[in-house]
Simulated assay, not measured.
Amino acid sequence: MPLHPQAQAMIEAYSPDPELDYAQLDAARLRGSFAIPEPAAPPREDVGTQTLHAPGATGPIPLRLYRPFAKEGEAYALPITVYLHGGGFVLGDLDTTDGLCRSLAARARTLVVSVDYRLAPEAPFPAGLDDAYDALAWVAHHAAELGGDGERIAVAGDSSGGNFAAALAQRARDDGPRLRHQLLLYPALDAACTHASYREFAHGYFLSAPMMQWYWRQYLADADPADPRASPLRAPDLRGLPPATVFSAEYDVLRDEAEAYAQALIAAGVAVGSKRWDGQIHGFLLQQGRVDAADTAIEEAAAALRAAFA
């Protein structure tokens, strides 16, 4: 499918400075020259928020709890979705996915706990992932206090947050807590950066191949890129993982690894709903009110969570 005009408009308005030299770039320069575009839609008013903290290895981990306002007759404990924002392991915070988390909470009728994990390169692998796991474990332990159901927990994330969600699902299979679902939105799953989509969409589609490769260098530092905790696609055994929903974008360097992971999960006997969003680019789900497909995709993601929690 041709690139959607709304995706083209996003590329023209929000692409990083083409003069950035990723061979010499440092994180401070990128953070100063590029911001993740905010959605055009105003935040939902049918979801309340609360600031929380989970204990972490180096101090409290900030969390934002999203609670959909109760509907008439809705008296039971709500399921819980632990959400990890994207940003290439280097950018992003709780505000980055605020609109997305609000929509998931309202549409999936789930508590959403968004995690403000440590960022690279100041805190390289596996610091952010460890924060994510500590937050997940804390949420599971305190589910009842949050008004949630500890037997119905999912993990979710977009881009590098999708990497964390997939890695958490693999770790939780062995160490707990038990998860109902993993929602992976155009996830980064293989640090090798060798899939065909890296060549096909290397430049001109918002997230470039040099930019993604730079993100991986900041995150991994001296770590092994084949470590499954960093590259969940490289895990030798995917059996027993929770059911998954995997979204990819047609014009995205990460497209092929997301789709390869979906196929690997299926081959391992995991139930998977996989969808390529034709005509779209990396990050489109954050553009509610600006990209029509974002609203449709969020509704489908919410439906997948509702089915998993039913």
Rank of each mutant, 00 (worst) to 15 (best):
E45I: 06
S208E: 09
I61P: 00
W277F: 15
L183R: 03
E19G: 08
L129W: 07
R44E: 10
R107Q: 15
G240L: 12
L238C: 14
R229Q: 14
R290E: 14
D98K: 00
A167K: 05
L3F: 01
A70T: 06
R152C: 09
T194S: 12
Q182K: 06
V253D: 07
Q213D: 05
G88I: 10
A302E: 04
A108T: 06
L168S: 13
A293I: 05
L184D: 02
L179R: 07
A260T: 15
P42Q: 05
G56W: 04
R31P: 08
L183M: 13
T51K: 12
W277L: 07
T96Y: 01
R31F: 11
T58L: 14
K71I: 00
L119P: 02
P68V: 04
G283I: 13
A230Y: 03
G99H: 10
Y76D: 11
G279H: 03
Y215E: 00
V139M: 01
R31M: 13
N163T: 11
A294N: 02
D17S: 10
A7V: 12
F164D: 00
G92I: 09
L25H: 02
R171D: 11
R199E: 13
A166R: 05
A301C: 15
L104K: 02
A75W: 00
F69H: 13
I61G: 08
P242K: 09
V253K: 07
Q182Y: 04
E122A: 15
D190L: 06
D98W: 01
W277E: 12
R44Q: 10
L238P: 06
Q218H: 07
L52K: 08
V139Y: 02
D95I: 10
Y215K: 04
A132D: 05
G157L: 11
T245Q: 14
V272E: 14
Q218Y: 02
G148D: 03
G86R: 04
D98Q: 09
D175I: 13
L233V: 11
V47E: 09
R180V: 05
I36P: 00
L146P: 05
K71L: 11
A268D: 09
A54C: 12
D26V: 14
L78W: 04
M1R: 09
A40W: 05
A13F: 03
S160L: 06
L136P: 01
H53L: 14
H181E: 11
A132Y: 01
P39A: 10
D26C: 10
P39V: 08
P55R: 10
Y22P: 05
A303F: 05
I298N: 06
